[in-house]
């Protein structure tokens, strides 16, 4: 089997050690003898959108995020078409915000997003920081995910949009409505870093399976791995206080 991953703006958006997510995806393929290729695309570089099964975009500091913003608008239609074609997209924190309709900064300035997610983000005065645990109904079953969040923006989903999960511990999208993240087709936005994928193996494998199915056009079953270390790390993280 084969899967192709496009990592968007890795040199600019890498603030919360989210390269761990890429490492997890790569290793979980290698351990299963799945051919995995990961290509990086930054400012001014356009991927061949049809050639990739999974797109990854993380968050950065303000300066870097502003640089990405205008470049991302040029990539908007390619990325949206890929998502409509059931490619997988994982976006974390700042990346998640840039994919929404807009981001309104504390000074009232509005930064246009690409509108892939029907959601908007408004900067708040106090950063929402701490451990976060959510319960997700993704993939039918009940899935407990643990991570860490650190964001000033409050994200509000449009009516009818589905969050990634319900907050058990932490703040989530906006600390008001109990939702965390967003799911649209196989595209996911979330504030959870930590990084997210290494210890949340069921979630990592869900994304991987969807990406493999996108590549091969047929249902895929993944070989199980010895995840005992990851399971321990997750068990500890699920019990942490906010």
């Amino acid at each position: 089997m084969e899967v192709r991953i496009a990592h968007l703006y890795p040199n600019l958006l890498n603030i919360y050690a989210d390269r761990g997510n890429i490492t997890a995806l790569r290793q979980r393929c290698i351990w299963r003898h799945i051919d995995v290729s990961i290509h990086e695309f930054t400012l001014g570089e356009e991927p061949d959108w049809d050639a990739y099964d999974l797109f990854y975009i993380s968050g950065g500091q303000d300066r870097e995020q502003n640089l990405v913003c205008s470049d991302l608008s040029l990539k908007s239609s390619g990325l949206k078409d890929a998502v409509e074609g059931d490619a997988v997209l994982l976006s974390i924190c700042g990346g998640y915000q840039l994919l929404g309709d807009y981001y309104r900064a504390a000074d009232g300035n509005t930064i246009e997003g690409i509108g892939l997610f029907r959601a908007r983000t408004i900067a708040g005065s106090k950063r929402l920081i701490g451990n976060v645990v959510i319960e997700s109904l993704l993939d039918g079953g009940r899935l407990s995910l643990a991570g860490f969040e650190n964001h000033a923006g409050r994200t509000y989903l449009d009516h009818g949009q589905e969050p990634l999960g319900r907050v058990v511990t932490g703040y989530g999208n906006n600390s008001e409505d109990g939702g965390e993240g967003i799911v649209y087709r196989n595209a996911i936005g979330t504030y959870m870093h930590g990084p997210l994928l290494p210890k949340n193996t069921a979630f990592a494998d869900y994304l991987l399976r969807k990406a493999l199915e996108h590549h091969h056009g047929e249902p895929v079953e993944l070989e199980s791995l010895d995840d005992s270390v990851e399971a321990h790390a997750l068990a500890v993280a699920l019990k942490l206080k906010k």
């Binding site: 050690a17 989210d18 390269r19 761990g20 920081i129 701490g130 451990n131 990084p195």
Partner: peptide
Amino acid sequence: NDRIADGRDISWIWD
């Protein structure tokens, strides 16, 4: 450790 003086966010070990 993940106490306040260590940083409660331990994601830095991946950096």
